[in-house]
Amino acid sequence: MSEIELVDVQAGYGRAAPVLRGFSVAVPAGTVVCLVGPNGAGKSTVLKVASGLLGPRSGRVMVGGRDMTGAGPQKMLAEGVALVLQGHSVFREMTVEENVLLGGYTLKDRTRKAKRAAFVKELFPVVGERWHSLAGLLSGGQQKQVEFARSLMVDPKVVLLDEPSMGLDPKATSTIFEQVVRMRDAGTAVLLVEQNARRALETADLGCVLDLGRVHISGPAADLLADPQLGELYLGGRPAEKPPAV
């Protein structure tokens, strides 16, 4: 059974034409599913619908087999769907500790909260190292890891990641993708939206190419990476191709 599934979803903003036009995706337990596609394809809109920030015009949002269509973000969080927003969304004037504990704000049981905090510190060593620092003083990549840790405090079934490598240098980007794999290995499913399509597909188990609000093609991420036509259209050419000899 999928942790989260969007079925034939139509969604958009205001009275404008729909951005998603019959979009479907399923995120099985313990997998990283990556959504790639050109700008304006509707990738971020998928995450807004999945997290409850945007209600679909039609279609269904299923969480663990339960129909949660139309539920708001707090209800989706309670059902185990956590969202990590695009850009940096830490509370800059608060410590890393406070940021992470805020992620578990809905947890009433102190022992459980302490256990989750210990777990995320183990999973993201930088978070533990910087536990008492102000989050605003951390680098972009470190802040992103604090956001990951915060999202895992409620022990979610699935984490929705919106462009986690945005604005990060190559080393920080590598660290971020390394942490996405660690999240998956720790048992949390991940639905990843990423502009850095090739790097994201290398990390993911399953891939889904989105274009004009519909699924263009989906399947194992490795197969999508190997498809030369997809490489040309969506992944910016194939790195395996060598430049012509001079």
């Binding site: 973000p73 707090q74 509370f91 608060m94 406070e98 805020l102 704000y105 915060r150």
Partner: peptide, 22 residues
């Protein structure tokens, strides 16, 4: 307190604090 932590989150970003369950 936990209450104070929620208040400080409101000061930083009220919408974000609400989305985390405050």
């Amino acid at each position: 307190s936990r209450f104070g932590m929620g208040l400080k989150a409101i000061r930083e970003d009220e919408d974000k604090a609400e989305s985390l369950g405050t």
